[in-house]
Simulated scan of single mutants.
Amino acid sequence: MPLKLTLAPEEKIIVNGAVLTNAGSPATLTVLNQAQILRGKDILTEQDATSPATRVYYVVQCAYLFADHAADYLKAAASFLDDYATAAPSGAPIVSKIKQQLADGTVYQALRSAKKLLAHEKEVLAHVSHAAPTRL
């Protein structure tokens, strides 16, 4: 089944590791075969991978986009997922789901689940920042 993408002017996408930018008016593309595609809003740069959940998302993203190096990225993902589960046990169900999806080879689904991990981390950090300080 073809995938139809409508790109806004200057919107970026990654197709099989190549970064493409729509240089003109809104454009509609139809992808007729299997390809690894990420829209600009879903792309996380290495420089932005600064928290436990963003590091998970970044390496899963790389495993999805760069199949030639997926084994290295998946190894890093396993380590980052373990670290996340240790630091935030309430995220264990999401971590478990991502690990299962990676084991099943459904890397794009794992990437979608990693977005849920980003939301979980944001929620946990919001709770921590609103907590009353303790007295010494």
Rank of each mutant, 00 (worst) to 15 (best):
Gly17Met: 10
Ala23Asn: 13
Gly24Met: 09
Pro26Gln: 11
Pro26Tyr: 08
Leu29Cys: 10
Thr30Asp: 08
Val31Gln: 09
Leu32Met: 12
Asn33Met: 12
Gln34Pro: 10
Leu38Arg: 03
Gly40Met: 07
Asp42Met: 07
Ile43Asn: 03
Ile43Tyr: 08
Leu44Thr: 00
Asp48Ile: 04
Asp48Lys: 13
Ala49Asp: 04
Thr50Met: 10
Ser51Asn: 08
Ser51Lys: 07
Ser51Cys: 04
Ser51Leu: 05
Pro52Phe: 03
Ala53Gly: 01
Ala53Trp: 02
Ala53Asn: 02
Thr54Met: 05
Tyr57Pro: 02
Tyr58Lys: 05
Gln61Asn: 08
Gln61Leu: 06
Ala63Lys: 00
Tyr64Gly: 08
Leu65Ala: 08
Asp68Ser: 15
Ala70Ser: 15
Ala71Pro: 03
Ala71Asn: 11
Ala71Glu: 13
Tyr73Lys: 03
Tyr73Leu: 00
Ala76Phe: 04
Leu81Glu: 00
Asp83Ala: 15
Asp83Phe: 07
Asp83Ile: 06
Tyr84Pro: 01
Ala85Val: 06
Ala85Arg: 10
Thr86Trp: 11
Ser90Phe: 01
Ser90Leu: 09
Ile94Cys: 05
Ser96Cys: 07
Ser96Ile: 06
Lys97Phe: 08
Gly105Ile: 03
Thr106His: 14
Gln109Trp: 05
Ala110Tyr: 00
Ala110Asp: 04
Arg112Trp: 05
Leu117Cys: 02
Leu117Ala: 04
Leu117Ser: 00
